[in-house]
Computed example of a mutant assay.
Amino acid sequence: MKVGMVASHYPHAAHREEFIARVHQVAEVFRRTPGCLSADYWLSADGEAVISTVQWESEEASAASLAAVMAAPEVDLAFDERESRPREIVRLVSA
């Protein structure tokens, strides 16, 4: 069963470009992991949110992929003062 994740991030305007670069790096790591079907990122039309989407072939692939991202030294996953509010993460399963 395919699974997915949609994450909404809210960087302060002064950190938006840096945050987009950070999300780009995370997407690159996701794409290299076995079972990852897609990893992309978007800017909301109002420019307030950076939205990342990932889709995997299974829950096992998702777990392994997330572990790989957490262990990747080249990515910055920190939630800190660069973001204006907490991230919103929605997990998805195929219907």
Rank of each mutant, 00 (worst) to 15 (best):
K2S: 03
K2D: 09
K2M: 07
K2H: 11
G4E: 00
V6C: 12
A7H: 04
S8Q: 04
Y10V: 11
P11I: 11
H12I: 06
H12Q: 14
H12L: 12
A14K: 12
A14H: 09
A14R: 14
H15N: 02
H15R: 01
R16Y: 03
E17R: 15
E17S: 13
E18L: 10
I20V: 09
A21V: 04
A21N: 09
R22H: 08
R22T: 08
V26D: 13
E28T: 01
E28K: 14
F30E: 07
T33Y: 01
C36G: 09
L37C: 08
L37T: 04
S38A: 12
A39R: 03
D40Q: 15
Y41H: 13
W42N: 03
L43C: 05
S44N: 08
S44K: 02
A45P: 05
D46F: 06
G47F: 01
E48R: 13
E48V: 07
A49L: 07
V50Q: 13
I51T: 07
S52C: 05
S52P: 00
V54L: 04
V54Q: 05
E57T: 12
S58P: 02
S58D: 08
E59P: 04
E59T: 04
E59K: 12
E60L: 14
S62C: 12
A63W: 02
V69R: 10
A71D: 15
A72E: 05
A72L: 00
P73H: 11
E74H: 09
V75A: 07
A78G: 08
F79T: 10
D80V: 03
D80W: 03
E81W: 00
R82N: 10
E83G: 06
R85D: 12
P86D: 13
P86T: 12
P86S: 13
P86Y: 11
R87Y: 12
I89G: 05
V90W: 05
V90S: 12
L92I: 02
L92A: 10
V93W: 10
V93Y: 10
V93E: 14
S94E: 15
S94D: 09
A95K: 05
A95Q: 02
